[in-house]
Design a protein around this nucleic acid. Sequence first.
DNA 1: CGCTGTGAACGAATTCACAGCA
DNA 2: TGCTGTGAATTCGTTCACAGCG
Lengths: 200, 200
Amino acid sequence: MKHISQPAKKRLITLAQLLQQYPDPKITSVKIAQMTGWTEATIRRDISLLELHSGISNGYETKQLQKAITQKLGIGQQETQNKLCIVGLARLGESMLDQTLFEGTGFLLTAGFDTNQNRLDLIKSPIPLFPTLDLETKIRSLKIQYAILAVSDEKAQFMCDRLISCGIKGILNYTNTILKVSPQVRLLNCGPGFMLTNLL
Amino acid sequence: MKHISQPAKKRLITLAQLLQQYPDPKITSVKIAQMTGWTEATIRRDISLLELHSGISNGYETKQLQKAITQKLGIGQQETQNKLCIVGLARLGESMLDQTLFEGTGFLLTAGFDTNQNRLDLIKSPIPLFPTLDLETKIRSLKIQYAILAVSDEKAQFMCDRLISCGIKGILNYTNTILKVSPQVRLLNCGPGFMLTNLL
DNA sequence: CGCTGTGAACGAATTCACAGCA
DNA sequence: TGCTGTGAATTCGTTCACAGCG
């Protein structure tokens, strides 16, 4: 099996999501290019990494392609799903407390944490919520491997350290703090302050 | 002046922010590498793009380096600041309605928009808020060039189109919708669903 | 023909490796 | 010796260009 690069992986996941709502039973690289703005060549190269060989000279079957992507990348099916939690449930964290946001990504939202017991009582959510006190125990017992960090900037590094000490694999940092993480932890800065620097 | 690539630019901005809170008056590429996880070589290359030539064999002066970065990249000073607005002020949008999040990024938060007049009345914010009705007029009159999109998924594409029709230059998409934009508009998907795909 | 799949060319960014300064 | 700055090598991702299938 060929190696699929990060950018290619990302495009393929997006593509799978697009195909889900694509009306025609057939699709070509040209049409995908029009929808996404990627070049034809890139799209064909990406798809060729799946080693389907089913599209020869005829475009791809929408549903088949979609299925191939999710299968090859191992997203969607329960067994492979990576468990995810949200740490910090103020406005920002609470706004992400919704499994539908993660459908088709390969992640399963499994828990929410907040220090404020009052807030935990107030929020009604189908996802179980816990006080931050239980962070370590719950992360280990529920086998959570990924976290969305949405606490206040002051607590960010501290909570980050606690998450790492639980052996978490990846963190989406929605705070505006530059976090120091050990190299085996994948960290992505998602806060607006960080993302804007990609626009300049 | 040498060309500074996107990735390098991003690292330099992060570095400038780090330097702001760095205690020692001197710093070396090794120390930066430890803090950030980047390689020494990359750091030295990045800094060399600034054409300082002040660090020969001795490490860099913290403050001087920081100043050089912000100056060279033209961030921080009022004249160069790019104006930014937030569209959609529900929990997510409201949580970003805070200029301090954007300090040192070269962006100035200038307006917030929401369809719900009631919400506009309720939120107290030093940043001026407007009904979505006035989106086009205000964006043009205030010369806003960048937007944070934080509306509900259903309205995302519609609002995106309206923003583009105003000639906006870049959009941070915090919704979970895959947006179709014209190629001259820079689009960054920041929603957790999108960001997670970078962790896989 | 129109479309895929892919070797080869290309371009961009990172890393190596070392000369040179204090 | 410890550090920077930078040509050269390398790696990685994208794009070209075309052979080959239906």
